[in-house]
């Protein structure tokens, strides 16, 4: 039997994620548990480093949607194995809470789901409310979950006004200082973000992760 050091396991984990090898990734997560390797390091130097690499390959046009989603799903499966064994559970690796939804009247969920999946893979606690969700409901959930970030997606130019409505309601209720609001969807531009007084938008899922990290100073 070959005995692997921590550093070697980290490298193998990165490779298993980048090569989209689910069985191998799961095996390595279990091995790390058995060997009592520092699990925070396993997450950070192994799985997170792996998914970052997948994200880079996607941004470079080497990977496409199926690889990106598969990588994030494998990562999620492994985190589900490791998190119960962390001393304080998910809080220990959670970088913050995100409530995300596609706005009312709009059923386009794929972009929003990809962003949610990537944020989860990067260690955020994500509450995905689905598509066609009224602004009031999104805010109610964000308050209940004590979210740091509200992400609102709209793919239709006809439903984008719902993104603005979120901020108007937050202002009316004096809740604007509680959350950072980010906007997503193909028609969203920086001019629209400015007009809505939102906190940002991103071109793609990887940029969205960077945006959320920077908004939360992570």
């Amino acid at each position: 039997m070959i005995i692997l050091t921590g550093e070697e396991i980290f490298k193998n984990i990165v490779d298993s994620i980048v090569n989209l090898e689910e069985d191998k990734a799961v095996e390595l997560a279990n091995e790390a548990l058995k060997k009592k390797i520092n699990l925070l390091e396993v997450v950070e130097k192994g799985f997170s480093a792996g998914i970052r690499k997948v994200g880079e390959l996607w941004e470079d046009g080497e990977f496409f949607l199926p690889e990106l989603m598969r990588g994030a799903q494998i990562m999620q499966k492994c985190l589900d194995i490791l998190i119960p064994h962390l001393q304080k559970g998910s809080e220990e690796i959670s970088h913050g809470k995100v409530v995300i939804a596609t706005i009312e009247g709009d059923i386009h969920s794929i972009g929003k789901t990809i962003v949610a999946t990537m944020l989860r893979a990067y260690g955020f606690e994500v509450y995905d409310l689905g598509a066609d969700v009224p602004a009031e409901k999104i805010i109610q959930e964000a308050v209940e979950k004590k979210a740091d970030i509200i992400g609102v997606s709209a793919l239709l130019t006809t439903t984008m006004t719902g993104q603005k409505k979120i901020i108007e309601i937050l202002r009316e209720k004096n809740l604007m200082n509680k959350f950072k609001v980010i906007l997503g969807g193909a028609p969203v531009t920086s001019a629209w973000v400015e007009e809505c007084n939102a906190h940002g938008s991103a071109e793609n899922a990887i940029e969205a992760v960077k945006l959320v990290k920077s908004l939360l100073n992570k």
């Binding site: 130019t157 984008m160 006004t161 028609p187 531009t189 001019a191 629209w192 007009e195």
Partner: peptide, 10 residues
């Protein structure tokens, strides 16, 4: 090209 939103109009 790409849509630009001004006010409530595209």
């Amino acid at each position: 090209g790409q849509p630009v939103i001004k006010g409530d109009q595209t």
